[in-house]
Design a protein around this nucleic acid. Sequence first.
DNA 1: TTGAAAGCGCTAACAT
DNA 2: ATGTTAGCGCTTTCAA
Lengths: 346, 346
Amino acid sequence: MQVSPVTTETKRPLTLRDVSEASGVSEMTVSRVLRNRGDVSDATRTRVLAAAKELGYVPNKIAGALASSRVNLVAVIIPSLSNMVFPEVLTGINQVLEDTELQPVVGVTDYLPEKEEKVLYEMLSWRPSGVIIAGLEHTEAARAMLDSAGIPVVEIMDTDGKPVDAMVGISHRRAGREMAQAILKAGYQHIGFMGTKMPLDHRARKRFEGFTEVLGKHGIEIEDREFYSGGSALAKGREMTKAMLDRSPELDFLYYSNDMIGAGGLLYLLEQGIDVPGQIGLAGFNNVELLQGLPRKLATMDACRLEIGRKAAEIIAAQLADPNTEIETRITLTPKISYGDTLKRR
Amino acid sequence: MQVSPVTTETKRPLTLRDVSEASGVSEMTVSRVLRNRGDVSDATRTRVLAAAKELGYVPNKIAGALASSRVNLVAVIIPSLSNMVFPEVLTGINQVLEDTELQPVVGVTDYLPEKEEKVLYEMLSWRPSGVIIAGLEHTEAARAMLDSAGIPVVEIMDTDGKPVDAMVGISHRRAGREMAQAILKAGYQHIGFMGTKMPLDHRARKRFEGFTEVLGKHGIEIEDREFYSGGSALAKGREMTKAMLDRSPELDFLYYSNDMIGAGGLLYLLEQGIDVPGQIGLAGFNNVELLQGLPRKLATMDACRLEIGRKAAEIIAAQLADPNTEIETRITLTPKISYGDTLKRR
DNA sequence: TTGAAAGCGCTAACAT
DNA sequence: ATGTTAGCGCTTTCAA
């Protein structure tokens, strides 16, 4: 039986020095090779790379970042990952940052201002090169941090308000107004509203405000409303719709604050054999991919998620590449209504 | 008109020294206050905190991590954010890590082994305290990195294979087998399969293998199959189902590799007035929340996403708290079939 | 083309 | 309870 050598080698992470010793070249030169900086002869380059690979060296970005005071991270702060909207924004951000040195790091706030403040603080303590943050509403402390961070900040999704620095989004107030106009124009008069129980979802709130504002100008009020939280949005949409119509059978239009509950309502109405959009019209918001597969296409409005992500990342990348760059930093995208099969066209 | 002072103060990030000077206390003591370490008198603590807040100081974790060689990051590496499965895993991870010092950092591989290798390298270069990575299949280089990183590694989702270190998941092969058994037991004989065009989705592959294995033992073969990529899964499920049934009307069961395409198929069959599960049975995989809102509930199997995330995070947290901890590090969860309304019970 | 020295901002370890 | 010193692993800067 063989005795195994008791080399209690606590796996110490490898350093540049290890590669330096293994290749017989100074740490500095190794560093240059690994970063493709400065002139290095092909001979040493080859030797260094061989040694690094052989050892399995992984550079220490912590040390690198401290020494160079360059951290190629972009903090991305969003309220949630669980509805399909923010992942798509992330996809847009990723698409653009992939062609750069920058790496996104995501923080989630659950729509809570204090959590946003905390997450922001945590992220800033890594000294990122830029911040992309959802919404224009932040705690005073959060705003102060963004203000004094000395890095590009892009507030996304919403443009109804004053940004700290740059912003990319749509006007949710306008989105609400336009939907109200389309609904009234189509001749609907008795309108119900369903949405999330989220006092802190400012974008949903603004859509609602824009919506009621236009109704009000036409002397119309929302006749019934219902809010939900948690659970399967599709199922909730179904339940709420049933409850509302049982309660208020005179309604001829249902406006949903998001497509998922709208889709649930649509499925319910179709099952009941109700004529959509003849007897009752429906509209949601977001233009989620899901809608493509439903028996009828729900009327909705695009939130421009991918585009917002891309533009925000482009602003950050451009500002970092050249701080004096002259690019548009206040971008308001203008989504069009998609009538689908649930809102009469007029 | 007042002349504004031209203090071209290039916003230099604040350091401990700034707080130290502002509060008249040594840097070390400031550091202690800010980390709640060691004994500090209430008087100085108060002064220091006031100064820090007043200045808007945000600690530099880069420097802190380098000095203490402690980086409270957990690298989480997943294939995708765009189907609902991984966000739910992240939620589970978050839930557990929120009660610790640890912070998850997410990397996405798009199901590409080379990209996984690259993402892993990038993340390891930040010297995280642990790694949670989806799947058991990695490039040789990736496996070597995980092996020699000297930190806890948890491979998640799948348990059909040999992990580098810890693993938490379900057996997808078994999931496929069990579904096949249930289908045969219910008396279905002519089976079609639909799935993604993803040769690199090993878990889908394993489910398929387990599925066909059991069918084979009963002398049954899959009679038709179809694969898709891109687009709305719900719409694709609808299209593929139509195409397949037009082509192979003798089929009496359709097995889908995920719930979304299964849901699309279900909606299509219901529209066609086909008797489900009498004439045709259906089953998907994942048990996504969406299913709750459909007119009928699709048969499926839970992927235990939340639980997997939680357990993985718990393993990391436990190992970091006490490297000699004696906890289970090979966890195979066993999901039960959910028959819903689309698979006959027998 | 290569190397040596200094220091990034913080914390461990040791004074006091 | 507070301060001092050294150094984390790398990059910047300057010298050779």
